[in-house]
Design a binder for these strands. Structure first.
Lengths: 238, 238
DNA sequence: AGGTGTGAACGTATTCACAGCG
DNA sequence: CGCTGTGAATACGTTCACACCT
């Protein structure tokens, strides 16, 4: 039916609807990929929570206490961690700083990632000005737009570049992560060109299901769908 | 461990980590709630895709063709729809317009929902100016902020109100849906006050796991976590 | 005693495969 | 004959419960 499928774009499905033939090849091959993506998606929350505890001076935490903060079960945390090794001390719990660093390392957050942003409309502007990316391991390295009025403009010491040279700049700068904040109609094309430049992970804000090769990971940010699914549960006259 | 848990805030888990004791009471009770939340979360994408096909003049579509557009399996679409009834014609497929309308009705998208937005920083501003909510059944009805410089300002014919009267205004205006775009430190407090005013669905942009009663649905929008989980798969060097 | 790490049990979601309808 | 709708089979994810460590 389709030649390309979204990979790990698991906003909607529990498991990747990936045909066996398109087996992913993310980084290392072999025994890896036994770890469910849903586990990987929970790890950032663990890191964030552990860092928060650490900042509040809490040096040690049990899986039960951590579960309470995050809103999952203690068994789930222990099971998730067991995919990667043994991080706790029996009878004691986990060292918050140590565990945060260990998970961050697993996620490759122990370095800074340069990110390419496509689209400098309302959303792109908000993303550019957002202060939360830098401390989370991400630096907006380049911004692209189609609008000639925007091109050449300077923001945060970043010059907005023409969309036309997106592939080339991404390749030249060796960027592996892209954020798509362009109108829906241009999203697929932008994704294709990012991937051609070497991007292997895409954060997609456009309300479009991107078709990408198996080596590329996509996550959708879709506030409209989120709202539209919540209305199912809201009792209108309440 | 915790008195309140997030409900259906299933950004991370497959199934709601809901203790049986806190059984949800979303709208109608009884035989309902047999339908998995993950199915509900897929429906908006079906609607969006069907409407897109309709606009392109395509009046009929098979589950297989629709699956191709969305990137799921045909069996999943048929199974999902089967929770709600029979919408197709054997040997023919589905009428795009009819099915879009049917699902929209299931999701209660056949009306306009008034939404309260808390936070008028970078993100809140972008949300206010976003043109995608209105055609998707959502109208930003009120905007709240703490910053006295912002309060009183007018945007799109909306006056920015003081955060102090959030609960009262939401109650007075009978608003059931809130969007949280305040700093992480104020997110829980804002959620509590929205809920006190009558809000039953929250779209949370703050990087915080909200604790809410079971009758409230929460969805997280967390771009940082999304990025941080994708780096796991990215092969840094080439 | 307190709490991890993990086999085994369980529950949930997806996919298969086909009867049956138009 | 093509395609839906759905029982049955399978795959996957979560939770239980406890051996084991400190």
């Amino acid at each position: 039916m389709q030649a390309m499928r979204q990979t790990r774009a698991i906003t909607l499905a529990t498991a990747a609807p990936e045909p066996a033939a398109y087996y992913p090849s993310n980084g290392a091959v072999g025994a890896e990929e036994a770890i469910p993506d849903i586990v990987i998606r929970r790890l950032p929350v663990y890191v964030r929570t552990l860092r928060g505890l650490r900042e509040r001076g809490i040096r040690s935490v049990s899986s039960d206490a951590l579960a309470g903060h995050i809103g999952v079960t203690a068994a789930q945390i222990r099971r998730d961690l067991s995919y990667f090794g043994k991080f706790g001390k029996q009878g004691k719990g986990y060292d918050t700083e140590f565990l945060a660093a260990a998970i961050a390392r697993i996620l490759q957050l122990d370095r800074q990632w340069r990110v390419a942003l496509a689209g400098f409309g309302n959303l792109g502007r908000a993303i550019t000005h957002y202060r939360g990316f830098a401390p989370s391991s991400f630096t907006i390295a380049t911004v692209f737009d189609r609008n000639p009025d925007h091109i050449g403009q300077e923001i945060n010491g970043l010059r907005i570049l023409s969309d036309a040279c997106l592939t080339e700049v991404i390749a030249a700068e060796d960027i592996r992560i892209g954020i798509i904040a362009v109108p829906a109609a241009f999203a697929q094309e932008t994704a294709d060109r990012m991937i051609a430049g070497g991007v292997r992970a895409i954060l997609n804000y456009a309300p479009v299901v991107l078709k990408v090769p198996a080596m590329v990971t996509v996550r959708e940010i879709d506030p409209v769908s989120a709202l539209q699914s919540m209305t199912y549960y809201v009792n209108a006259a309440g």
